[in-house]
Computed example of a mutant assay.
Amino acid sequence: MTARLMRWAALWLALIVCGGAFAHVTTTGLLRIEFTGGRVLYALSVALPELPASATATLTAATNGDRAAAETVAEAARRSVTVDLDGGRCRAGRVRIGGAGTNETRATVEIDFTCDASHGRLDITEDWRAFLGEHYQTLGNLRTPSGERPVIFGEEARSITVDIDRTIGTGWFDFVKLGIEHILTGYDHLLFLVALLVTARGVWSVVSIVTAFTLAHSVTLSVAALGIVTIPDRIIEPLIAATIVWVALENLFAAEPDRRRWIWSFGFGLVHGFGFASVLGELGLKGVTLVRGLVGFNVGVEIGQLIFVAVFLPALMWLSRGRGARLAPRIASLTVAVIGTYWLVERIFVG
């Protein structure tokens, strides 16, 4: 009895912790940093529907010409981003605020920095959490005369250091690392995997589900990153949430939810691939760098996915012993359905 109570206590604790994490989707900004001759251009693009209501209202007003709102955004930008070169603080210049082309659901913030030095150690610190939300992170690339490299500002690191005198290439490992970090912080994709695997029966079932999902999202990630097919985030993001709800409800109400689960895994994996591509496709990569980035990022996503599966399945098997064999999948599916429904409603009506 004690062992059984301990297992169920662990289950509820895990659900509470996961629910708290999943209920706050990481808001991701897309960034371009260019360094040329002692000058740094910082150009950030954010999706308005993903932001807190106050930040969305202020940015929207600023892009529409509201002077007070623009000054509020500019002040937040100067507090959130600092640049140092060769030990000296670079001076922030004019902050420009606008929309991202014809996409009215995005806003851009650009800052020019002027540095007294033209070489040495470049330190960039970014922390927008006070303005853009506690769970905000940034993905992008830094370009210098020596080359370019991916950059990430998130919960693990709010600053980067680069020696601009050293040739910096966009290597395979950089993109693999980016893919791993993206999937392990992409809570909606992980929640979808939970819904797919929680009713899996046997090794073949797990292999077929994971393989189908991998093949599908690899296809759409590739065609989207190469610009062959482009679907706006305002369509893809609600669809991703809908796939989560669908699979969770099937787990709860279908007589044999595991039967032919690989078909749903493949079909819905095509949708999730476009979600992955939204990160890679806007980094501005071209030519050989784009191909290297596509392959490396995709490999990183698969590695991160395997890491999650390797951790999740043993935990599920442990919780599913005895009476847990019936209750654990149902409790997990119900939790997934509730969180997925919240995301679906939010992404349809808020953005």
Rank of each mutant, 00 (worst) to 15 (best):
I209R: 01
S265M: 01
A224K: 05
R234C: 06
F175S: 05
D258C: 06
V176I: 13
N251Q: 08
I244Y: 04
S208Q: 15
R166A: 14
A216R: 06
H189A: 13
T199M: 11
A255F: 09
V194D: 01
D165A: 07
A212L: 08
I180F: 02
L196F: 08
G179L: 05
V247M: 03
V207E: 11
V203K: 12
E237H: 05
V198G: 01
G202T: 01
E156C: 08
H182Q: 12
W172Y: 11
L249H: 05
R260A: 15
D165W: 03
G227L: 08
H217K: 02
I152R: 14
L184P: 02
G186Q: 08
A212P: 06
S265I: 01
S222R: 04
I183N: 01
I152K: 09
W264T: 12
L215G: 10
V223I: 15
I240A: 03
V219G: 02
V176T: 05
G154D: 15
A241S: 02
S208R: 15
A157V: 09
I168T: 12
T243L: 07
T185K: 00
S208G: 11
T220A: 03
W246S: 11
Y187E: 08
I209L: 07
G202F: 00
A248F: 00
S265V: 01
D233E: 13
E250H: 02
R166M: 12
I231W: 01
T230Q: 15
D163T: 07
R201S: 07
R234W: 13
V210M: 07
R166G: 10
E237V: 07
A195E: 05
P232M: 11
D165K: 03
G154N: 12
F213R: 04
E155Y: 13
D174N: 12
S222Q: 05
A224Y: 06
G179W: 01
A248M: 00
S222C: 10
N251A: 05
W204C: 08
H182Y: 15
T230C: 09
